[in-house]
Design a binder for these strands. Sequence first.
DNA 1: CTTGGCTATGCAACGAGTTGCATATGAAGA
DNA 2: TCTTCATATGCAACTCGTTGCATAGCCAAG
Lengths: 193, 193
Amino acid sequence: MKIGGMALEHAILVSLLEKPGSGYELARRFDRSIGYFWTATHQQIYRVLKRMESDGLLAVRGLPQQSRPDKKEYSVVGPGRAALSQWLHEPIEPESIRHELAVKIRGAAFDDPSALIHEVERHRQVHSDRLAHYLAGELRDFTGPTAPTPLDAGQELQHVVLRGGIAYERMTIAWLDDVLATLHRLGTRHPAT
Amino acid sequence: MKIGGMALEHAILVSLLEKPGSGYELARRFDRSIGYFWTATHQQIYRVLKRMESDGLLAVRGLPQQSRPDKKEYSVVGPGRAALSQWLHEPIEPESIRHELAVKIRGAAFDDPSALIHEVERHRQVHSDRLAHYLAGELRDFTGPTAPTPLDAGQELQHVVLRGGIAYERMTIAWLDDVLATLHRLGTRHPAT
DNA sequence: CTTGGCTATGCAACGAGTTGCATATGAAGA
DNA sequence: TCTTCATATGCAACTCGTTGCATAGCCAAG
């Protein structure tokens, strides 16, 4: 029994408690919603689901479907809920950042900095799209006229996490603008060694 | 030859181009400076350094020391510089976030949300300390009276990366305050189901 | 009618990253 | 004197995560 790591297990427990589903459905949730803060491929998810089921954290229900392969619907059972509860009471390490683009920017000093401009603009576009997507989701689920009022505890917590995503994207876009301005400034000076 | 991944190799190339050094020294740099945006343990670094040397990207120089184990000073040679240059011209995937605390916050809906308050406060403290550390570094190296003027291209790029770290920490602290306010609000309502 | 996309699950191989342990020496402090 | 800290490198075992591939049927577009 490891105590560190295993974060995917916990993300799956949370997602299945919010709503039971199959591996395939989980993989799609990890492309939206909870996937904004934790990513996983379907292979990883299937592998972990199998392990969690054999560890007694999850129950499976085979759903035969017409004209489709069978679906295996997973749901959290007692020990799974207990495992989540225990994890919630353990401290976790504050995130260590892994920012590949930042490494590239520092590396640009040993090449042509202005060659990075297109790459940075592309990243800016991706983050701008993500922000628009988050804001649309916020309006739909939490702040718009179709949102439930009042929000229950689960919805309040989902909303504050989404606000974190929104703040992250806004901050990133502003920083990438700063990076672009810096790269342009360097481009108008003497070229790199 | 893989094209994706291998990000640690590139971080090492950048760091060794900024200044040659041993595995041990690199490990310390990955606890400061470049490590703010890419982390690695000493085992990982030693392993990758050995591979990069046998791939001809790095050169080693054995430095016998008195009263200490020998130091192996690595430096980037031609093919290493070329590999970095090639990587700089390839597109990379925009970062996918891995925010364990966000998963915990959503999970708190299935437990007692107010039990998370101490954990969130602890994280806030860590980010607050990091911010202070970054600001001190900025003053020392870039904006204070002891900083070189004008900055060269490499220093400008290091500075803009550091500004990214500062913006990230400020954003995170503000968000954690939002999380704390939300948890307190939920605590004063009816307890969780 | 063929190509591609969507649902649905899975294996195999590899690379990335972590944890525990081991070794060796000198210097500083309890 | 004994312990701990800092320098300096490394092996072994493990888990985590990615990539490529395979299967299988249905549906829609060209």
